[in-house]
Each structure stands twice: as structure tokens, then as C-alpha cells.
Design a protein around this nucleic acid. Structure first.
Lengths: 133, 133
DNA sequence: CGGTATCCTGAAGGATACTG
DNA sequence: CAGTATCCTTCAGGATACCG
């Protein structure tokens, strides 16, 4: 007899379900700074301060926090070298590389579609201005 | 003579640049509810209240706000039918479909990788518990 | 039904200072 | 250099009420 007794099927992960853990995973990889950190590390490994310069606008605090979250999820590998001055290298794990390739595709798409989006916004705002009282 | 006088090359869009408009586009499509709305609309068109049920956890306010943002960016088409009771249909534009396919890939990936991420978190937390004072 | 308006709170996130 | 710690501000977002 298959699956006798206790064993139950778990429901398949579903991001549309509020309680599904997959939603948390998705929110980490699509987070404001998570996207950019993954995208940067796809190019190559970076040290902390290199990454801070590469991802313009991120604060030390948010970069550290984002890296910890990504490391905990298994996307980023952190290598601290016990030298003076301290040196810490960050790179992608194989799992992180998968995520990074998907977010990088989205990032490049966003770069390419800036003109269309800008045009759409102008049209929308012009139309709203007419409609408005 | 090409490009005589005034005309300058615009810098290519770069999401890593804090001032680049592509970053705003990326933040809209990767926003907490934007991702899920795009993903849902990739399946089929939805009415407002259908969408609210499909994207579990979203409030009316955030759904309305997200839909407006996506409509303004040219990703979502809004069709209001002047009937009683009111009926409004939302669907993807061709541009929105491109974005939705990319975010859906990320969403499905997140669903598939839940086990790996959960395992990584457990290991991380166990290691942190040992290291901690 | 499909919103908008208002109020309110918690979390995200920036600035600054400090440390191993 | 690579962070932590602290404080403080902003804002996403929830709850509620109301409207065409």
C-alpha cells in the first residue's frame, strides 16, 4: 500500500497563497536591494565596499542586512578573510545564480523598456489632467 | 554631418545607477503586489474583486494603487463597463505581458526552491546559535 | 461592485557614531 | 575595511468609512 497511514501530501507551493513560504522567498529575491545585489554578483564576486559602490544608493546598513538575508536563504556565500584590514568576499551560490539570472533578465528588460514606460506615463498623465476637475 | 551640434548621446539605462529611470520601472514590476498582480493577469483577465481574491492578502487600497501604477506604466489595460452593478476588467498589454512572463518565471522558481531555501535557513540559524554568546 | 478618502501604525530605511 | 548600534524619519500599507 502506498503512503500508508500518517504521510500526507503537502499542498504544492503557491505564491498566490498568503501563507505559502514561497511568497517569502519571492519577496527576498525581489526586494529593493536584493534584486540589485544579485544582479551585481552575477557579474563577479565583490567585496563589501565594492558592492556598496556598485549598487549606487544603498546604505551600509541595508547592504549588510540584504547580504545577510540572501546568505541565510542560501543565495550568497560570504568569505571573511582574517587579515588586516579585514576583507570579506561575497559571491553567488549555484542556487543564487539561478535567482540572479532571472532577476537580471528583469533588470535588463526594465532598462530596455524605459522609453515605452515613459511614453505611457506621459499619455496617462495628460489624459488624467483632462479628466480631472 | 551626423548628429551635428546639439544632439548628445543619452547614457544607456543602467539599473545600478541611483538616478536611472530604469530603476523605477524595475521597482514597480518587482513591488510586493505588482509581482503577484502581473502573475495573476498572465493567466487571464480578471475583474477587480476576482483579482482581490486571487492575490490573497492584498487590501482593496493596495490593489487599486498597484493597478493604477501598472496601468500608468502601460502594463495593464483597464476597461470600465458602465453597467449596474459596475464592472471593471483588467488585462495585460503586450508590454505588460513581457514583464509578467519574466516575473512569473521568478515566482515559479521561488515555488520550486522553497525546500532548498528552508534547508539553508535551518543550517544558517543552527550555525548562528552555536557562534552566538 | 469598484472604488476613494482618511486616519493610523509598524516596518523600512537613512544618518551618524562607534568598533574589532 | 567591514561591519554594529542607535536614533530618527518616512512611508508602505492596513482598517474603516463613505460614494457613484
Amino acid at each position: 500500500m502506498e503512503n500508508a497511514g500518517i504521510v500526507r501530501e503537502l499542498p504544492p507551493p503557491n505564491v498566490f497563497d498568503r501563507m505559502c513560504p514561497s511568497r517569502g522567498v519571492l519577496e527576498h529575491v525581489t526586494s529593493r536591494w536584493g534584486v540589485l545585489v544579485l544582479g551585481a554578483l552575477l557579474e563577479r564576486g565583490y567585496r563589501f565596499s565594492e558592492l556598496r559602490r556598485r549598487v549606487s544608493g544603498v546604505s551600509e546598513k541595508m547592504l549588510a542586512q540584504t547580504l545577510q538575508t540572501l546568505e541565510r536563504d542560501g543565495f550568497v556565500r560570504r568569505e571573511a578573510h582574517p587579515v588586516i584590514p579585514p576583507r570579506v568576499d561575497y559571491s553567488l551560490t549555484p542556487l543564487g545564480r539561478e535567482a540572479a539570472e532571472l532577476v537580471a533578465a528583469l533588470a535588463h528588460w526594465s532598462e530596455r523598456r524605459v522609453p515605452e514606460v515613459a511614453a505611457s506615463r506621459e499619455e496617462y498623465d495628460a489624459r488624467a489632467a483632462v479628466t480631472a476637475p
